[in-house]
Design a binder for these strands. Structure first.
Lengths: 128, 128
DNA sequence: CAGCATCCGGAAAGATACTG
DNA sequence: CAGTATCTTTCCGGATGCTG
């Protein structure tokens, strides 16, 4: 796949991402946060309850799960449905906007997942 | 991992992203790091020198720029070309792999940039 | 017991000053 | 110009508590 030196342009969005004080930065930091991506991926597969998310997104702490879900809900990516039963049952699902986002997110994740082994494998020294 | 309804699925990568101890997580954290994304976007437009990157990716500190570039170079996304002149000149560019990655990254950034205003604008309360 | 909120210690991010 | 060293701040994870 040879694509010269500036093959990927034509998006014109870069004026809105690289500047410091733009809304894109805020949303970007939410979406690309460590756990934000994984929660979105998990929810893109199916709706999840709190405990399910906690188990599916391996390694996430309860604090970060709560915080991530609150942020994503606040941004309108995730819908929280709480049922005042005992014990409480809270379901999380993607909104329309969340699905629109993950449509762009999943291909990226797929590529990373496909190439992660070779990338990490050929590591010339310890990093990260 | 049994997943019942999978609306956006068909990717099959999720088995390799959500588990804790997988290489995908490492690469993912590098790529989706706060500054990693922005540096990749900047380099997708054209090669940059150190000082150019510092000015283009607004708000990045020198420490984080150095650290981010080192990580991305180590992962094989970025090529560092140093000329031992005085004053020194160091150019950074995307590798083939880096271009393959940004091909998936740019559409996501474009979407975020397009919708950031409405997302942040409709904020119902203080967050972030 | 499920689903959170809060407090604390360590780790990482971030800004600044300095060096070749 | 292109970084490193140092210091400060913010973030993350774990433990604990609370509520129905």
């Amino acid at each position: 796949m040879d694509i010269g030196n500036r093959p990927l342009s034509g998006y014109g969005f870069t004026d809105g991402v690289l500047p410091a004080a733009c809304p894109s930065r805020i949303v970007l930091n939410h979406v690309t946060s460590t756990w934000g991506v994984l929660v979105l991926v998990a929810l893109s597969q199916s709706d999840h309850r709190w405990g399910e998310l906690r188990r599916t997104v391996q390694g996430i702490s309860e604090k970060m799960l709560a915080q991530t879900l609150r942020t994503l809900e606040h941004d309108g990516f995730v819908l929280r449905t709480a049922q005042p039963t005992i014990p409480p049952r809270v379901d999380y699902s993607l909104t329309e906007r969340g699905r629109a986002l993950t449509e762009h997110l999943l291909p990226l994740m797929s590529w990373i997942s496909d190439h992660a082994d070779e990338i990490v494998g050929e590591a010339s020294g310890p990093a990260d």
